[in-house]
Design a protein around this nucleic acid. Structure first.
Length: 822
DNA sequence: GCAGTCCAAG
């Protein structure tokens, strides 16, 4: 019997002890007399192999009963480890340690407790408290005992430092082991590699790896892992090649499964294939983990044939293989195939796990199979994985994209362990569904819960601030990104630039732009931003600058710069852009063509606009609307109406904007009856009139002097009249000198737009024209009191290639004129 | 005593 046990222990008891064997031995031991217990080996074996908590407790009780505890260090240690493996009873661990009689404690017992805390701390859920307990035991070893740390102590404490990124402590331990000369030990150095790697200190990793007196297979695997974890993919592949070609070590399963994801991220199908060949050559192809990693790698490279081939040929498959298959298919959008495999997996009676669910859900979202997704949610509840972070986060995303906010927030609230992705998914749901305030508030709440917003949070919430125009919140977030350093990520700086631009703070937008990384998107944001301000000429210079810094203008750039040209009537510059776009064949893009129409009509070049329009092969509503608006603006009301009728015949889906265009044309031409007809026509089409439509109608009636009808229309509205409506009425009143009605309109207008200088000016001028000077003065004072600045009159001139803007009261630099005459 | 395949948010 003893020999049998001994042999087992020598060949690693963990793997050989079957459940039944342990049961039998336990039964035997509890029945037998105490001499059996002297065979410590036997007990250790049992402890190591104990497969349930109650077995360990049984052994524990027997040991106390037979008087081996609290004397035997071996038994205490074995029990401590056994308890730690069940992630339970942390108090029992320390009790076992402290109850062991002081004279029989040893460095070994300290090491065991330290190891146990390492196991507890670095389990599936990180436990900082157990990590702290581990560090206490390590410190205790120096201070309160007569023992010294040994080569078994350091790997554990270093693992804690590595897992918890305790950089200072790790450096201290490194110093200590140099002092105590344990730095020759290969185990210690391997863990040290991991520590430096996790801290991102690759320089130290490289140096240590070069200086290590001895390396083993694990050293190579660790260093490969560390480089891949730090995103140094080419270096990782280099190390792998060096290992194969130069070192005396042969890659094993761990090496291959570490290097394959790197080949996958590099999307280097040749690399994956060569590793695949190598695996065959050295006979590792039967390894299920390698097969799984292979399936995954081919999937990430988008080679569906190879992926399915490897999967088919695998001699052994587990649930990870199926998950990899499904994930690989879904990764490149083969969602239907992924769903088929998922069904097959169920039919084959494979065990689904949380990863299967978290892989399948996004594929179903992509397919818009939401009710199927809800079924999968049901599965996950049955399996008890619905509050797993990955599953729950995928569910939050799914319900959000489905528009089921209560579903999303139910999942979110039920999670007992949220992470930053959970918060970001919720924030994204709100931000992308026009619930901006909720998104912004959730960022605050997230911080109150101790979660730090990352770049994804910011790229989600900044557009929400932009849409709300809430500069204050945007600035608050900006300050935070500077503190956290994430403002330097391209995505974030672009979102910041966009937020400032949309809030109208182009100076701040420009500032972010000037101090951050830039790409084409950054330029487009500013070009578009400036095109909607008084600084349109900046759009033009940025457009040219793109060319100079080697960036290619795209559709968005053309659209932005053409809007700018239209706003400042920069005809020559706009035509240059047109020619430029033609050389790049970009003018064929519908959006660019529509921008050209807008530009030419606003500049009054209706003939060129017509030519551009005629050459658009497939016009959309915007193309037609722009032309109708253009003709209307130029007073060619008949043509505008003809275009509107032609549009209907062209089977283009005319929209509410089309009616704004045609109504404003009628209004310009004084065609009251025609306008009314179109308005009724619109109602008959079930197009809900907006404030803009009513404003057109008020304008139409008002211009023709039908003030009463205009007022009746305003009074009959079910909605609260907006600024456009009051503005239209005010304009009409000024035209017809109706001061009383004008005041009524203007007071409403100023209430809605207290910062709109034009309204004050209009009202004040109207009073002045009616000779009511004191009233005019009152309005001027009100405007000054509210600190409303009147936008100065501004004009532009193009001299040679340069566009110059100047405002009222400012003189053009004479040198420019000289230059132009040269 | 040290390394270890598959999953979620823009």
């Amino acid at each position: 019997m003893f020999h049998h046990v001994r042999a087992l222990r020598l060949t690693s008891c963990k793997f050989l002890c079957s459940h039944i064997h342990v049961q039998r031995r336990l039964f035997f031991l509890s029945a037998a007399a105490s001499p059996q217990w002297r065979q410590t080996t036997d007990i250790l074996l049992l402890c190591a192999a104990a497969q349930t908590l109650s077995q360990s407790q049984q052994i524990h009780a027997q040991a106390v009963l037979h008087g081996h505890l609290p004397r035997s260090v071996s038994i205490s240690s074995a029990l401590i480890l056994s308890y730690a493996n069940f992630y339970s009873q942390p108090s029992a661990l320390y009790a076992l340690f402290s109850q062991t009689l002081p004279f029989s404690r040893s460095a070994f017992l300290h090491n065991t407790l330290l190891r146990a805390y390492t196991v507890l701390a670095s389990g599936s859920q990180k436990s900082y408290i157990d990590a702290a307990r581990g560090f206490l035991i390590y410190n205790d070893l120096f201070r309160n005992t007569g023992f010294q740390p040994d080569d078994h102590t350091f790997p554990f404490v270093l693992k804690l430092c590595a897992d918890f990124l305790e950089r200072a402590k790790g450096l201290e331990v490194h110093g200590m082991l140099t002092k105590t000369r344990f730095n020759d030990d290969v185990f210690v150095n391997n863990t040290l590699l991991l520590f430096y790697g996790n801290c991102g200190d690759l320089g130290s990793v490289e140096k240590l790896f070069d200086d290590m007196p001895e390396r083993d297979l694990i050293s190579w695997n660790t260093v490969i892992r560390v480089f891949s974890d730090n995103g140094c993919w080419l270096e990782t592949v280099g190390l792998f090649k060096e290992m194969v070609l130069v070192s005396r070590f042969r890659p094993n399963t761990v090496t291959v499964v570490s290097v394959l994801p790197v080949c996958a991220w590099l999307e280097d199908i040749n690399l994956v294939s060569s590793v695949h060949c190598y695996v065959f050559k050295v006979g590792l192809d039967g390894e299920v983990r390698i097969g799984n990693a292979m399936v995954d790698a081919y999937g990430k490279c988008g080679n569906v044939a190879a992926l399915s081939g490897v999967f088919e040929e695998m001699v052994e498959r587990n649930e990870v293989s199926w998950n990899s298959l499904i994930g690989g298919l879904a990764y490149r959008g083969f969602n239907t195939d992924a769903l088929d495999s998922f069904r097959l997996m169920i039919n084959e009676n494979m065990k689904l796990n949380s990863i299967t669910i978290a892989t399948m859900l996004p594929a179903l979202v992509d397919l818009r199979f939401f009710s199927k997704g809800r079924e999968v949610h049901g599965f996950s509840i049955k399996m008890g994985v619905d509050s797993d972070v990955f599953v729950a986060n995928a569910l939050i995303d799914m319900y959000g994209k489905w528009g089921h906010f209560t579903g999303a927030s139910n999942v979110f609230c039920k999670m007992d362990l949220k992470n930053v992705v959970s918060w970001n998914s919720m924030i994204g749901n709100f931000a992308q569904n026009k619930r901006e305030l909720e998104a912004i508030n959730l960022v605050r709440e997230m911080q109150a819960h101790g979660e730090i917003p990352n770049s994804v949070t910011l790229t989600n919430v900044l557009p929400a601030c932009a849409r709300l125009g809430s500069l204050y919140q945007g600035k608050e977030i900006h300050a935070r990104t500077i503190r956290k350093g994430s403002a330097f990520e391209l995505f974030v700086s672009n979102a910041l630039t966009d937020m400032y631009a949309k809030c109208g703070c182009l100076d701040l937008a420009q500032n972010v732009f000037d101090t951050s990384l830039r790409d084409e998107v950054s330029y487009n944001i500013l070009i578009t931003g400036y095109s909607q301000t008084n600084d349109c000429h900046n759009s033009l210079s940025l457009f040219s600058e793109m060319e100079m810094v080697g960036m290619k203008q795209d559709i968005v750039s053309y659209m932005g710069v053409l809007t700018a040209c239209a706003n400042i009537l920069a005809i020559r510059k706009g035509m240059e852009v047109h020619a430029f776009a033609m050389r790049r064949l970009s003018h064929e893009h519908l959006f660019v063509a529509n921008s050209l129409l807008d530009f030419y009509t606003k500049c009054g070049r209706i003939k060129i606009a017509t030519k551009v329009f005629d050459r658009i092969p497939l016009r959309d509503a915007a193309s037609w609307n722009t032309m109708i608006l253009g003709f209307g603006m130029l007073g060619e009301v008949g043509t505008a109406i003809n275009y509107f009728e032609a549009m209907k015949e062209d089977n283009v889906e005319y929209d509410s904007v089309s009616y704004i265009a045609v109504l404003s044309a009628c209004s310009h031409g004084g065609l009251v009856e025609k306008g009314k007809e179109y308005f009724d026509d619109m109602l008959a089409q079930n197009i809900k009139p907006s404030g803009m439509h009513y404003a057109c109608m008020v304008d139409l009636l008002g211009r023709s002097g039908l003030m009463e009808q205009a007022v009746d229309l305003i009074k009959s509205l079910s909605m609260k009249p907006d600024a456009n409506i009051w503005g239209a009425l005010l304009g009409a009143c000024r035209l017809h000198g109706n001061v009383e009605l004008g005041c009524w309109a203007a007071e409403h207008l100023l209430e809605l737009r207290p910062d709109h200088s034009g309204s004050y000016a209009l009202l004040s001028n109207m009073y002045a024209e009616a000779g009511r000077w004191d009233e005019a003065d009152r309005i001027r004072k009100l405007m000054n009191g509210r600190k409303v600045k009147k936008n100065p009159g501004c004009s532009w001139v193009q001299i040679q290639d340069q566009l110059h803007s100047f405002i009222v009261g400012q003189r053009l630099d004479p040198s420019l004129l000289l230059e132009s005459s040269r």
